[in-house]
Design a protein around this nucleic acid. Sequence first.
RNA 1: GGAUCCGUGGCUCAGCAUGGAUAGAGCGUCUGCCUUCGGAGCAGAAUGUCGUGGGUUCAAAUCCCUCCGGAUCCGCCA
Length: 626
Amino acid sequence: MINSHLEIDSSIENLIENSIEIPPTFEFGERSSNIAFKLAKFLKKSPMKIAEELSQGINNNLDEKTLIVKTTPVKGYINFFINFIPFFNRLYTQIKKEGAKYGENTRGKGKKIIVEHTSINPVKALHIGNLRNAILGDCIARIYKRNGWKVEVQNLIDDFGRQVATLIWGILNGHHLGVVREINEKYDVWLGKVYSHCNSLLAENDLWPEVDKVMVDMRHDPHMYRFMRNICQTCVDNNLETSWRYGVTYNYLVWESDISRSGVWEETLRLLEKNSSFHWEKEGSNAGCFIANLGKLDEFQDKKNPDKVFVRSNGIPTYVAHDVALQLWKFGIVKANLISRSVVKQKNESEETRDLWTSTDFRVSGEKGKIFGKSNRVCNVIGMEQNYEQEIVRYSLKLLSLNNEFENSFHMSYKHVNAPHARFSGRTGNWIEERAWADAVFEDTYTAAFKAISKKRPDLEDNPIKREKIVNSITAAAIRYWLVKFSTETEIKFRIEDATSLEGDTGPFLMYSTVRAMKILTKLSKIKAFSARGDYAITQNEKNLILQLYRCPKVIKNAADSLQPLMIAKYAYELASSFNRFYETSRVLNAESAKLKNFRVALVQIFSIVIQNILHILGIPIVDEM
RNA sequence: GGAUCCGUGGCUCAGCAUGGAUAGAGCGUCUGCCUUCGGAGCAGAAUGUCGUGGGUUCAAAUCCCUCCGGAUCCGCCA
C-alpha cells in the first residue's frame, strides 16, 4: 500500500520533471512545462484550461522570496519566469563554495569502474582512429570521476596476437631492412610501415603458416619471447609519448602475455567447464572444440550459428574467449593476480599526475606490487565493428548467472575515423600517405596554430618558450575537441582542415572565452565576495549565461548515463558562446554602476570556475593568454 | 540470407533515449561592428520536401512498418 503510493508519487515527480523544457524563445519565459497536454487525457479537459488553472494556482503561491516571479499559460504550455536576483545569489554561493567540484556528484561513491581504451596492437603508431578511441576513453574516465566513481584506466597491450607475430616474422626474415627509416622518424611510425610491408609480402606469397609458427615460438621459446617483448616495449613507449602529448594517461598497462602466464585463462576455463552452458563438442564440424552455448539465449536466435568456439581443436583459446576471461578478471570473479610494477609518473597539466603501472613478466626483488581489477563496473572502449563480439562477452556473463556483472558491462561503441573515400587500416598502411597518424596530425595542427599566433601575438616572439607552450595547448585542444564533438555513432571523415580548424565550434574557441574571463579577473585589484542587495537590471545575455551555469551538474550526470562525452563538448560550446555574447554587450570593469559591476564581476568569477571545470573534463589545457 | 548503425541547408554535424511552440550550430557566401575589459569574437542575411512512402497521435526529425542509399557484423581471425 505504502509502496504503491510511493510509486505514484515518484511517477508524478517524473512526469513533472520530464515535462520541463527550455522554451524556443525567452518571450515564453526561462522554463516551460507541457504537463497540461499530458494531463488532458486523464482530466478530460482541454490543455488550455488546465494550463490556466495550474498557472493561476502557482501564481497565488508566489512571493518575493520564491525563485519564480510568475507563470503564464500560453496555448496549453505553462511558462515560468525566474526571479533572477535571488536565483543568481543562490547559484553564486553554491559555485563559489564548491569551486573545482561544482558540477560533480557522488552517485558512484564507494564503487570502482575500469575503463579500458586505446588498446592498439604494439606494432605501429596511433592513427587518428586510435586517437578517437583514446580521447573518448579518456573523457569518459574523467566524466565517471566527476560522478563519484573510483576510476582505473587500463590499456591492453596484445603482444601475443597475430599482428605482433606478423611483424616479428618480418623482422626475423630481414624484411624491415627494406623499409627506410626517415631522419627523425619515430620508431612506432617506422614500425607501422614495416608491419604493413610484412602484410603485403605475406599476402602475395601466402606464407601465413610461417606466422603461425612464430606465434607458437613466442609462447614457448624464452629468447624469442624476450626479443618480441623488447620490440613491443619500445613501440608502447612511443605510443605513450603520443598519448601524453594529447593529455591522455593510463593507470595500468595490461600485457596479453602476462595475462596468459598469470593463470587467468586456466581459472576461467575451469569456471566455464562447471557450467552447463559450455561444453566440449564431441562431434560435427566443431568436434574437439570448447563451445559456448549462446543459442539458448533469445538474443542469439537470429544468428546463423549462435554457438561460439571458445577453444580451438588445437587447444588454443580464441580471442573472444580471452576477452571473456579478461572481463571476469576485471570484475574480480577470476582471482588470479598479475605481477605489476610502477613505471613512471605521467605528467599531465590538466589532471593530477598519475602513476603509471604495468603488468610484467619478472619481479625485481624488494619491489612492491599493486593489485588491479576487482571493479564494480567495466567500460570497454572498442570500435563498433566489434559490437557482436562484445555482446558475446556480455552474454557469457549471463550464461554464468553473473547478472550483476552482466548489467555492469558497458561497451562504448564508436565508429571509425576514415579518409573521405577509404577506410584507414593498420594492415594496408594507407594512413601513411594521408598523414593520418596521431603525431602527424599534431604536427600539422601545430603548424596552423603557430601561424595563427605569429599573426595575432607578434609580441610573443620575444618569449618562444611561452609561445611554444601555448601553441602545444591550442593544438591538443583543437584535436581533442574535434574528436569528441561528434556522436560516437557518427563516422568521422578525416579532413586535415577540419582537425586543424581554430575558429567557430572548436577547442581554441573555448580556450579563448576562458582567457577573456581570466583577463578581466586579473585586472581587478581586489576580488570581493559578492552578495546581492537591492535591485539592478539583468540583461537577456546575462540571464542566459546564468542559466547555462546552472545546467552544469545535470550535463555531467547525463554524459555519464548515456556514455556520450559529446554532451560535455556541446555544453562547453554553449556555455562559452553565452559568455562571449555577455562579454560583447556587458561592460564589466567600467560598468554603469558599482552595484552592476559587483554583479558582473561575480558572474565572470563563477563562469571562470565552471568553464575550467568543464575544460578539465574534456582534457583541454587551460592557458591564461593565447 | 539475418542483425546493428547511419541518411537533417552548398559542406560538416547536433537534436531522436523521455514525441510538443518558429528544426539548431559551425564552415563557406553576403552585410555590418576595432577612440570600448583581447576581433581565435559579436550582430544580421540567404540557403531545409529532416532519404522515400505509409501508420500511430490532439501533436512526428523523434515512435512503428515498407522501400532506397551508405557502413559494419554474422570465423577454430583479432
